[in-house]
Design a protein around this nucleic acid. Structure first.
Lengths: 332, 332
DNA sequence: GGCGACGTCGCGAATGGTGGCCATGCAATG
DNA sequence: CATTGCATGGCCACCATTCGCGACGTCGCC
């Protein structure tokens, strides 16, 4: 592959001049510029970013740690992050931890060896990482764990989301509302439960504890939690599922029990994954503002790269209600 | 950040020795090794891959061009590719073209400037790229276009898949089988149609041309094609949709016309995207062997990196039938 | 005619590592 | 004791680029 030296030789100038015309970083006579440009064309010269990074200290690459890029929620988020990063001239290295801590550590180490300019952590595994040992690497956490000093965080206002979802069900006339919660140790699960309780309390509806069942944030988790819920004596006319995948699992189980959604059972999900509107029935859900999230995450990261010592920021994003066909409205 | 020189100084050896103990690339006395390792710990030294790449000429990064990483089929594939690349010690740079040629070009140029070791093209936009102008960059195409000299390709045997799907419907007792085809200019659409025709011919069933409707490979495409199909006089008892998203769109439209799947209408999809088994009803579909695809794609790429001048390979992968609940079997 | 200003551009060091080649010192062997 | 061999490890050039410093030539002005 041609180097800047080859170009310089062919153009009859110094590498300095070539560098300057390529980067428009100081004045070069029209004649000199033309010679350089000709040589670049002839040799099919492509500047070498790795040399540039070595010299300049910045790679213009961001690392992205995610538990599973195949999860539709993350897939959607990733795509937005890529989009925003591209606008800022950054490339993204994708790292799927698959929930495996060793793998997460491995990736972290690869990324710091590559001298990525910053990292986006969209993985709850990130919690268990000795993050501090990666020095001052700029990071923003997009997960659900507790705050941690020195890093920026961006997350969904789950308490508010849980409140809004539950309130919508209440307004639709429901009183017996089941909650399919995520794993209880995750703080977004906890927050969604808290929001649910706040809405119920506000409407003076007493919560039967058997209405709250938890499961993984997956389709299968929805199946288990829903199966458990259906075993309880106190029946329920509607369900708030802590994410769309769980909602889908729950609807499946309901169907197997002869319950038609929304006729016999109303269901509201959370996230608004792309499949939600294609589902049968199209899912009413709380949409997380992914584009905004991506935007803010990158903005925070870039800001931190500028001033690494600044204090950890924390941004909360409010979800919005998307009404489709999985909730029956009985205004009576 | 500490450099190899800092480590050498602290350990009281030369940078050469440090390099060799880190890379285990020549014998170093136990004592020397210990001193180096101590120094590495103390300084929290992390080797700089960019310097290494510059010297060594290989970055151990692969570029991945994809139309939309958010498409569940691609999302799944990407996750496998990442997995396999990781096993081989490579990182992946994700590039979403969003169907925009300018963007694709931009990404290609960024990737070649970064001196990635190879590229995976999972995007039909790649077709329109002046691929030859990127010199001898090792690439493998995972798309649906026609063959092109000098590059390896890996793809699904769509003709066979179309044949198998149609044959399954025929065996289930259906005779009037609609085909929701993808965009007609794409060769995998063409091949799936060809497979459909072959199966129909083999069963001596005459194909009514109005049964074949095409649309984009998306949910919306399924909606349009299905809407068109339902307008035809010659009715259909089952449908082969050229991908799962289209199948979902079709099922939605059918539902709006009061048709219950699979009671009134049987539907078979293609791809087996992760959402297919969660769908309502769970989708019978042709599964593409994504893990194998990822495996082979990386293998081909690595092989081509070894011997860039070798002839373009072409690998065809056969899908398998996954039976779930969207096809009614009336063996009569 | 001398001097400063200005326009243009080259030299060489530096970025962090790797690897070929060679140096040093000690033990064994004749 | 001289020579050889082996174990260990240092020197320095090189990878592709950027950038501070300074050089060179021309022009104008006093």
């Amino acid at each position: 592959m041609a180097t800047i030296r080859d170009v310089a030789k062919l153009a009859g100038v110094s590498t300095t001049t070539v560098s300057h015309v390529l980067n428009k970083t100081r004045f070069v006579s029209a004649e000199g510029k033309a010679k350089v440009e000709d040589a670049v064309m002839q040799l099919n010269y492509v500047p070498n970013t790795v040399a540039r990074s070595l010299k300049g200290g910045s790679s213009r690459v961001l690392g992205m740690l995610v538990t599973d890029s195949n999860n539709p929620f993350y897939a959607d988020l990733i795509q937005w992050v890529d989009q925003v990063a591209y606008r800022h001239g950054y490339n993204l290295i994708l790292c799927n931890t698959q929930g495996n801590i060793e793998r997460a550590k491995d990736y972290m180490s690869m990324l710091s060896q590559r001298r990525v300019d910053g990292m986006l952590m969209m993985s709850s595994d990130a919690r268990q990482l000795p993050v501090s040992s990666y020095g001052t690497m700029p990071m923003v956490m997009m997960d659900s764990g507790p705050d941690r000093a020195g890093y920026d965080r961006i997350l969904d206002d789950s308490e508010q989301g849980g409140y809004m979802a539950t309130k919508y069900l209440l307004q639709a006339g429901h009183r017996c509302i089941g909650l399919l919660a995520g794993p209880l140790e995750k703080s977004n699960s906890q927050n969604r439960i808290a929001g649910y309780r706040r809405a119920m309390a506000e409407a003076y509806v007493e919560v039967d504890e058997s209405w709250i069942q938890s499961g993984e944030f997956t389709y299968e988790g929805g199946v288990t939690a829903m199966t458990e819920l259906l075993k309880q004596q106190k029946k329920v006319t509607s369900i708030f599922a802590s994410n769309d995948l769980m909602a889908m699992g729950a609807i499946r189980v309901a169907g197997e029990h002869g319950l038609i959604v929304p006729k016999d059972l109303s269901v509201i999900g959370y996230d608004d994954i792309p499949g939600a509107k294609y589902f049968n029935p199209p899912l009413t859900t709380m949409r997380q503002p992914l584009e905004l999230m991506a935007e803010q995450a990158i903005a925070m990261l870039l800001a931190r790269m500028e001033t690494p010592e600044s204090e950890g920021q924390r941004t909360l994003l409010t979800p919005t209600l998307i009404t489709r066909d999985s909730v029956a409205v009985n205004l009576a």
